[in-house]
Structures are given as C-alpha cells and as structure tokens.
C-alpha cells in the first residue's frame, strides 16, 4: 500500500465521488416521486392504470439493474432511442428505485391498523378524508425504515453504472486499475469513498427513523 499512489489518484476519485453523489441524489428523488405516484395509484385503485403499475413494480423489482441498463443503453438505440450513458443510468436507477419506493410507501399505508381506519369511518370520514388525515400521515411514518433501506440500496446500485462507462466511483477505480495495476490502493480508496457516503447517511437515517417512530406517536 503506497500513500503516493493514493494521493495521485485522489483528484480522479473526487470527480467520481461527485458523479456518484449527484446521480444518486437525482435518482433517489426521481425514484421517490415515481414510487409515491405508483403507490397512490394503487391505493385509490385507479382502474387499468393500477394493473400497469403492478406489472411495472414486479418487472423492475425482479430483474437486475445491470440488464435494465444494458437494455436501455444497447438495445433501445435499435428501436431509435439513443440516449447518453448518464441519461440511461438515471432512467435505470429511477425505474428500479421507483418500484422499490412504491413498495415502501404501499407497505406503510397497508401497515395502519384496522382499528384506526374503522374509527375514521365510524365518525363518517370519506375515503379521501380518511387518506388525508389518517392513512397518509401514519403511513409515511411507517414507511420511513423501508425508504431509508432503499436509499442506501440505491446508492450502492450506482456502482453498476460502471458497466456502461459512467465515470462514477467504481468506474474510476476500474479505469485506474486498468491503467496502473495498483489494485490494492485503488480498491482501498474506493471502499473508503463509499464508507464516507454511506456511514453518515445510515446514521442519519437511523436517527430519523427513531425520531419519526417516537416523535409522531409518542410510543
């Protein structure tokens, strides 16, 4: 292990770090928007569209991101849709993440006890009022742990972007290894870089989970 080699590689890793961070950020926000829309469509049983949403969720959750990316990047141009690697990466991450986030939100809405719903109905709430005042506020709180797990998962999945040559962290390390063969040093920096992103984030999310759990309902 040589510090000189690590030092020389740092500027490139910083660039890779930035790519990983901004793509994760945009991808996760996109995934949450898609996921929320999908779970609302399922919650209100919007005819026909809810079936399409279910099919999408199952397809995205049960296939690997890598093959989803290959499809976007290599197969779509054949039918006339040519996109840059970065666009493919973002679409892939939102496609995959949207399905996971939809499951997380739906899980939260489903987790509300029957008593809560029935006592809402008992005071004459409409389905919309029930959703607005009972199901959504409690459901969001219940879905926080699953959303937190998804966020960590999606950030790790960005490492797969390296297969379509997006210059994020993992791709940076692989390029450097290919050029200079110092695999120990570059892999070390790579692991540390992920730790720098994920450890504070996972602590933050755990703290948030606790706050939501104890703060909102006081138990």
């Amino acid at each position: 292990m040589s510090w000189a080699i690590i030092q020389q590689s740092l500027p490139q890793f910083v660039k890779g770090f930035q790519v990983t961070v901004w793509m994760s950020f945009v991808g996760i926000i996109g995934a949450m928007v898609v996921g929320l829309c999908c779970s609302l469509i399922q919650y209100f049983h919007v005819p026909v569209i809810d079936k399409i949403v279910s099919a999408y969720v199952e397809l995205a959750r049960n296939t690997p991101l890598l093959i989803q990316l290959f499809f976007l990047y290599y197969a779509f141009p054949v039918i006339g849709l040519k996109m840059s690697a970065i666009t493919c990466g973002l679409i892939g991450l939102i496609f995959l993440g949207g399905a996971y986030m939809a499951e997380a939100f739906t899980g939260g809405f489903d987790g509300i006890s029957k008593n809560q719903i029935e006592s809402g109905e008992a005071i004459g709430m409409s389905k919309w009022q029930l959703a607005r005042y009972v199901v959504f506020p409690q459901g969001f709180a219940l879905s926080v742990p699953a959303i937190a797990a998804n966020i960590i998962f999606l950030i790790k999945e960005t490492s797969i972007f390296s297969v379509i040559a997006i210059p994020e962290l993992t791709n940076t390390a692989l390029d450097l290894i290919g050029l200079y063969y110092h695999s120990n040093e570059y892999l070390f920096v790579l692991v540390i870089a992920y730790a720098i992103i994920l450890i504070p984030l996972s602590l933050l999310l755990t703290w948030l989970e606790r706050r939501v759990r104890y703060g909102t309902f006081g138990d």
């Binding site: 960590i152 790790k156 999945e157 960005t158 490492s159 797969i160 390296s162 993992t170 390390a173 692989l174 290894i177 695999s183 120990n184 892999l187 790579l190 692991v191 992920y194 730790a195 994920l198 450890i199 996972s202």
Partner: peptide, 18 residues
C-alpha cells in the same frame, strides 16, 4: 452492508489472488 457487491467482487478478484 456498506460495500457495494460489485466492489466486493473486485476486492476478492484482485486482492485474494495477489
């Protein structure tokens, strides 16, 4: 939990043999 699986594969692929 922290190391992405791709990276894990490379750790074993490059470091163990060497």
């Amino acid at each position: 939990r922290i190391v992405p699986t791709v990276v894990l594969l490379f750790l074993f692929y490059y470091i163990l043999p060497r």
